[in-house]
């Protein structure tokens, strides 16, 4: 098994006719993903290398039974596109788009949560891959290997680095997920590791965080209470200069949290193995699952 996507997922690509959308959608399709449709208002009836284009998500879903949306539309249309996908019946929406205004992001999150049961991954994320089954997004599938470790990360390139270290040691992955580093991500670390815990084919979890925000601290608390599988973690930014504080308001909200030191401490005390460099992720996981 895997989480969120597998060989049965049916993907509709929003912005399939754009350069980025087309490039990655075709790559995903070549990997074996069921890319069943694309949308682009005004271009319904056309196709991109055999993938039919529809004017709306609703049409695409009723014609092709698509259940996952992959979004490449520009930032100014992203909120509308994500909501259209959710109300059009897609259960999972993967939003790759970078540079969406925070107010749009927060607004679409609020509506999704109150009015739909769709899950949103991203925005500003590399998507996810269940190796050997489906790739929905922009991750380089060459570095992955089918197996039993779940990988979740805020950073794109660090996800690749971690996956690469696992694959090098012949440790395969069930699903690799980039949740993105924007202020209001759809799915958080907790949402993902909760699914890894429940997945029978995931034996261990790699969680990669970085400085800023409190998502890692919240995940640590969750791990302590709810996760029985081994967790290997890496936090980037131990030596990074402190980021700008959002006035006094920001300081009051984040308190003493957000630094690499606090994140590492809390994850360690939650029972996770926290490694010092990404290169050590592979060895640490090897040890964790053999022990």
């Amino acid at each position: 098994m895997s989480i969120l996507i597998d060989e049965n997922s049916r993907v509709v690509v929003q912005g399939l006719t754009g350069r980025e959308g087309q490039f990655h959608a075709l790559r995903n399709k070549a990997y074996g993903t069921n890319v069943v449709a694309g949308t682009r208002p005004g271009k319904g009836g056309e196709n991109v290398e055999g993938i039919p284009i529809f004017d709306t998500i609703k049409d695409a879903v009723s014609e092709t039974n698509a259940d996952v949306a992959l979004t490449f539309v520009p930032p100014s249309f992203a909120k509308e596109a994500v909501l259209e996908a959710a109300f059009g019946g897609c259960k999972l929406i993967v939003c790759i788009t970078e540079g969406i205004p925070a107010k749009d992001e927060a607004g679409m999150y609020d509506i999704l949560k109150k009015e739909t049961d769709s899950l949103l991954l991203g925005p500003n994320c590399p998507g996810l891959i269940s190796p050997g089954k489906a790739n929905v997004g922009i991750m380089p599938h060459e570095i992955t290997l089918p197996g039993n470790i779940g990988v979740v990360s805020r950073s794109g390139t660090l996800t690749y680095q971690a996956v690469h270290e696992l694959t090098k040691l012949n440790i395969g992955q069930s699903t690799c997920i980039g949740i993105g580093g924007d202020p209001v991500p759809g799915m958080s670390f907790i949402d993902v590791i909760e699914k890894f815990e429940k997945d029978d084919d995931t034996n261990g979890i790699v969680m990669i965080g970085e400085i800023g925000g409190t998502a890692e601290e919240e995940a640590a608390e969750y791990i302590k209470k709810n996760i029985s599988k081994p967790v290997v973690s890496y936090i980037a930014g131990v030596t990074a200069p402190p980021g700008k504080k959002m006035g006094h308001a920001g300081a009051i909200v984040s308190g003493n949290k957000g630094t690499a030191k606090v994140k590492i401490q809390e994850l360690t005390s939650a029972g996770a193995t926290v490694v010092k460099t990404p290169t050590e992720i592979g060895e640490a996981m090897k040890e964790a699952i053999s022990g």
Partner: peptide, 22 residues
């Protein structure tokens, strides 16, 4: 020089681990 904020941040850390400063 690196690609992606996470990887660059991580590179600074690994340089420090090896006794250097970025």
């Amino acid at each position: 020089i690196g690609n992606g904020a996470g990887l660059v941040m991580s590179t600074l850390d690994v340089v420090a681990e090896n006794g250097g400063n970025a």
